[in-house]
Nucleic acid binder design. Structure first.
Lengths: 393, 393
DNA sequence: TTACTTTGTTAAAATAACTAACAAATTCAA
DNA sequence: TTGAATTTGTTAGTTATTTTAACAAAGTAA
């Protein structure tokens, strides 16, 4: 695992100031030492010294001179995004998606692999290893320059111990996955579950770029949410935050042992399919249920209209509950909700305006299937505080 | 307002280390310099110097010697809780409750005042001023030794600007209350709404002492919640977190303009009274509705039983929703919920076990009407990072 | 009484940031 | 064209804070 390891104390200030400079340089690409001094509230000599150090390390580069503003021309500095690289990996069913990115989170190379069935821990590790080798070869990046790897796994992840408690499809159950990958790949590992990774992805490189709190809502076979508060992923006291499938929304028939949550039961893709079947609608389980409902409604089907409205109502209720509790700045909708059309989105916004006093900015996820990978990459950058550093304002 | 004002940078480390020492000393009352050095990872000379400084300032005291552990006897140090004092104040309707406390949050003197009706800003300020003078005189505390005052106000508070947007009962509407109190009392002010203050109170000196995340749920004429995550109060992006009265729980009849939230409408004290009336139950509006329902149920009233069950169900649903979203370590119930008996509490716990995968520790608030005051006091200590400092672990 | 421990202090060294002063490079106006 | 003003970057010396090393003070135990 990557961790800052707050060693002693006095070097800590220097580290903070270095991060402050890098942070500014990441926000605005071309700055002079003098401008950095102003923005970081450090003295010019101090900035010069730290910059010199980081140029030696390859973290920063001088890139020509800028326009004079009545005096000597400034030497412009740039954050060298190619100094190091990070790797992201996402397991999804028997598929593995993997990418190398620069330190801005920009993808350099990407590669897909299919795991052989049935998936077990060893074959997954092997796939990771091989795909990594391929990627590094293809992008011409030296292994020593890789900072770490972020891995997204389905199921609940206990990050503290690096153990995955519940990752059904990859054959990893209660294994110290983190350590295992670390040993096999000889790279620092950041582990998290898939929804958290996607959340981080949309937050740092998608719809939520720039906001400081955000809820990422995913509707698939289940319903889950990722939560970012104060620019930090919030995981809950038992890593179970955002398990919104368990909210009490919709009909709640007598629950059988070990069954899904009520919200999920009613308004996940499977839930909606069930309702459609009960209404006698002819729907294809292979195609987006929402798209089909919208089409059927457009064609005048009364039961489709009813169900579509019910779905909007259900999803909006879920959103209303989260918004009431958290008051996030933005809500990002994903999964099946990506098929919402403008009318549907407006309907949901309309319901929320009726129900809650403050409505967040609601939008669709932008990264689609790339969200997980993007998040995995950014989780490594984040762990190194190479991203979104607070700085010494 | 009190704020740390991160000036330069290098003094920041010293401040951090001082706080680290104080933090340790607050956790374990009698420690030697050598022990502090170990616990804070600072060198002994450094600890000595910082301790010396703080002894001069009166923050720390030497209190005799301890047992030898094979060598020279240690000189024991103690955090001097009486070095300074803090003041807490809570407005509630036309009542003002106020107290002085030491730096451990222990109340030294307390006093009640009734504002003259109708309440306006000026009379409230006057009451604050007079009561403060009384308290200081009674407790013999010098005004210079007061660090600041925490003020709890009903309604939504915009803390950033120190403006209260909505404080119906005190006659303060859209006024920069913070600055006004600051000028009048010549003390740093920490302002917050009443639920947040109560939450902070239960967190730092009540049922939630020691946990790192907690939800405080209050049922009165409305329903609201205070949220603590990572030992910090979470306020939301527009200071509207915990407005759980707007959750979609229970019947949702057509909402009229500007009307309450659904959850609140159904399961606040007023909501339950409405339901009781509709069921033809004879209840006294002056007495706890829950107590009456429990009594009537015990006496065999069928409609009371039905309603009581509905109330448990409704409250548990609200809790389930919050727990699904937040996964807090603990849930503290307050307001009308304080009248829950063991059977009622168990019923709620039972429902939650059925509905959500992880159930937090659920308990009743311990501080009752003192919660707000306690929170006001602790909010000042917190603002000075004299409480719960992270330290240099 | 002597050897060994633990605690606390002193003195010198090490870090890292700041101030002041200045050199370098450029604009602009006389 | 020249010199004053301005902005950028560096050098040198000062200050603040922590660490290391050494030692004195005060015990314990054999």
């Amino acid at each position: 695992m990557i961790g800052r390891g707050r060693t002693g104390n006095t070097k800590f200030v220097k580290q903070m100031n270095r991060e402050g400079i890098l942070h500014q340089l990441r926000q605005e690409p071309r700055l002079s030492r003098a401008e950095l001094a102003v923005k970081t509230n450090l003295s010019r000599p101090c900035v010069s010294a730290l910059v010199e150090e980081m140029i030696q390390e390859g973290l920063i580069r001088e890139v020509g001179t800028g326009e004079s503003r009545g005096g000597r021309k400034p030497i412009l500095l740039e954050y060298n995004v190619q100094a190091y690289a990070v790797v992201g990996a996402v397991f999804e069913g028997s598929e593995l998606e993997m990418a190398v990115a620069d330190m801005k989170g920009e993808m350099i190379a990407q590669r897909h692999a299919r795991l052989k069935q049935p998936v077990d821990g060893d074959s997954a590790l092997k796939a990771l290893e091989e795909t990594l080798a391929h990627l590094l070869a293809a992008s011409g990046i030296d292994r020593d320059r890789v900072i770490g790897i972020g891995v997204g796994l389905p199921g609940i992840t206990q990050r503290r111990s690096g153990t995955v408690s519940h990752a059904p499809s990859t054959g990893w159950m209660d294994l110290p996955v983190g350590r295992e990958i670390e040993e096999r790949l000889r790279l620092p590992v950041v582990l998290d579950n898939d929804v958290n990774m996607m959340t981080q992805g949309e937050f740092s490189g998608g719809a939520g770029a720039g906001v400081s709190s955000l809820v990422y809502m995913y509707v698939g076979t289940g319903i889950g949410a990722g939560i970012i508060l104060d620019k930090q992923l919030y995981r809950g006291s038992r890593e179970a935050s955002g398990e919104i499938g368990y909210m009490r929304i919709g009909d709640s028939p007598a629950r059988r042992k070990g069954e899904f949550g009520v919200f999920e039961k009613n308004f996940s893709v499977t839930g909606i399919h069930g309702k459609a079947k009960a209404l006698g609608l002819a729907v294809d389980p292979e195609v987006s249920i929402l798209q089909q409902l919208i089409r059927l409604s457009g064609e005048g089907s009364a039961p489709a209209k009813v169900l579509l409205n019910e779905v909007y109502h259900g999803w909006a209720s879920g959103i209303a509950n989260m918004v009431s509790v958290l008051d996030p700045e933005m809500l990002v909708l994903s999964g099946e909700m990506l098929h919402l059309d403008e009318a549907g989105l407006d309907r949901i916004r309309e319901l929320l305006l009726e129900w809650v006093p403050v409505v967040p900015d609601i939008r669709l996820a932008e990264l689609r299937e790339r969200a997980g990978l993007m998040g995995a990459v950014h989780s490594v950058l984040e762990a190194h505080s190479f991203a979104g550093t607070p700085g010494v304002s």
